[in-house]
Each structure stands twice: as structure tokens, then as C-alpha cells.
């Protein structure tokens, strides 16, 4: 299992069951640094589960995942994988940003407090430095004037932009997005996609689960089509989206396009 040195994320033969339901049936995937990978596929195909295994929010049953050359959630000794303790897993997660479909901002904290919470409590950054960095991030997502607002006072699009800023505050090596625009009103989708596109141009490594095919075509280096817990097809957007080889990919695309 020597990870190729040029992979930021390497996923090998990952299996995952919920009870008797096999959600991931052997996933293999590699993401190079600076690349944007867009994952598409029907509902229930295991996209969220796959994303959640990458930062160990779900444990895998079989296989392994490495990020930036380090195994996630396990330590290897010989041919055994030892599960890491929670504190070590938490430390690994600070290098992996996760943006949820439903934002999950902390409603009782202001926008600024939401963003500085992890840098201060997980990385031990001084509060002052964390605030300065948070303000820069808010400026980047165009919400500096909302620093003192509470999440409930923001629109869905603004909340998701704050959630992205919150994930960026840890300066992660990798960003994971789980349907970041699916909970938004149609007119708010654009502002969130613009922020993600901006990050993509900046060279952040990202895996994005989305149903926005137009976004995938514009931003993705690789498009991955998943169905029933397997990667059915992957490649550049021009191939997978415009000239799919697999019948299932074609059937799915004809429904969403």
C-alpha cells in the first residue's frame, strides 16, 4: 500500500455497510493535489458516505484512505491497522475541511465566533490572530459586514458561505463539499458556486458532491459517477459528461441534464 507520492487523497478498496445494507462496495479513487474532483450519482448511491469516510466521520469496514500521505483514522503497524484514538482523529480532521449540505453553523454563536472556534480550540491559535484571519476570510466570501450577525439572520446562501469560511479557517489541505447548494433556493446557488470556483482557481484540492452538472463541466478536473456503492465511470468532464461509456451514466445524465 505505498501511496503514490503525487496523490493528495488515496482511497483503496473501501467497503462500508450499515447493518445489512452495503453502501460502499469497493471504492478506489485518487485525487492529485490542486485538483477538483466532482462526484455525481443518484440519491442513495453512497456519495455522502464516501465523503464522510474521508474525514473518518464514518469508519470503513474494509480498505483504507490516506490524505496527504497519512492514513485517516488508523495507524499501520506491519500488516495491521490500529484504530486511532479520538483525539488523534480530531487532529487529523483539522487538515480536512468539510462543508455540509445543511451548513450546520452553530446557531448560538455569531458568524465570527463560528469561524474562530476551531482555530482557537483545536489548533490553539491566539484569539487575536484567529479574528484577523477570520475577517480576511469573511472579506473573501463577501460577508465582512455580517461578522456580528447570528446565522439565523442570514440567507441560506450567506450561511453556506460562512460555513465555507469556517472550514477554510483551519487552512485545510483538502476541502470536502457534500451537496453544498442542494438546500438553497435556486437564486442563491450561484453565489455559493462562485465562492467554490474561486477556491478552485486558487488551487485548493477539493472533492465536491453535487448535482450541478454545469458547475462540474466548468470546474472539475475529474468527474466521478457513482452508483450503488461503486465508481461506475470516471474521467475528465468532457468524457464522462459528454461521451459517457457506461449505460448507467448515460441514463443518469439524461435525467439530470
Amino acid at each position: 500500500m505505498s501511496a503514490p507520492s503525487d496523490a493528495m487523497v488515496e482511497i483503496r478498496s473501501v467497503h462500508k455497510k450499515f447493518g445489512s445494507l452495503e453502501v460502499l462496495r469497493g471504492i478506489d479513487l485518487a485525487v492529485r493535489p490542486g485538483e477538483v474532483t466532482v462526484v455525481i450519482g443518484p440519491s442513495g448511491s453512497g456519495k455522502s458516505t464516501l465523503l464522510r469516510t474521508i474525514n473518518h466521520l464514518e469508519k470503513v469496514d474494509r480498505g483504507w484512505i490516506s490524505v496527504d500521505g497519512t492514513l485517516v483514522g488508523y495507524r499501520r503497524d506491519g500488516d495491521k491497522l490500529y484504530e486511532l484514538r479520538e483525539r488523534e482523529v480530531l487532529r487529523q480532521r483539522t487538515k480536512i475541511g468539510f462543508v455540509f449540505q445543511n451548513f450546520h453553523l452553530f446557531p448560538h454563536l455569531t458568524v465570527l465566533e463560528n469561524i474562530i472556534e476551531a482555530p482557537v480550540s483545536a489548533l490553539g491559535r491566539p484569539r487575536k490572530a484567529a479574528v484577523a484571519a477570520a475577517e480576511k476570510l469573511l472579506e473573501r466570501v463577501g460577508l465582512l459586514d455580517k461578522a456580528a450577525a447570528y446565522p439565523a439572520q442570514l440567507s441560506g446562501g450567506q450561511q453556506q458561505r460562512v460555513a465555507i469560511a469556517r472550514a477554510l479557517a483551519l487552512e485545510p489541505r483538502l476541502l470536502l463539499f457534500d451537496e453544498p447548494t442542494s438546500a438553497l433556493d435556486p437564486e442563491l446557488v450561484g453565489e455559493v458556486l462562485d465562492v467554490i470556483k474561486d477556491l478552485a482557481r486558487g488551487g485548493t484540492t477539493m472533492i465536491v458532491v453535487t448535482h450541478e452538472i454545469g458547475f462540474a463541466r466548468e470546474v472539475a478536473d475529474t468527474v466521478v459517477f457513482m452508483d450503488e456503492g461503486r465508481v461506475v465511470e470516471q474521467g475528465p468532464p468532457a468524457d464522462v459528461l459528454d461521451h459517457p461509456v457506461q449505460e448507467r451514466t448515460r441514463a443518469f445524465l439524461s435525467k439530470v441534464l
Binding site: N55, L57, R87, L90, R91, Q92, R93, T94, I96, F98, F100, H104, L105, F106, E117, A118, S121, A122, L123, R166, A167, L170
Partner: peptide, 9 residues
């Protein structure tokens, strides 16, 4: 879950 994803102790 969001707190755990951010690595908050």
C-alpha cells in the same frame, strides 16, 4: 458532527 469535523476537542 460539524464540531467533530472541525476537530474541536
Amino acid at each position: 458532527e460539524a464540531a467533530a469535523a472541525l476537530g474541536i476537542p
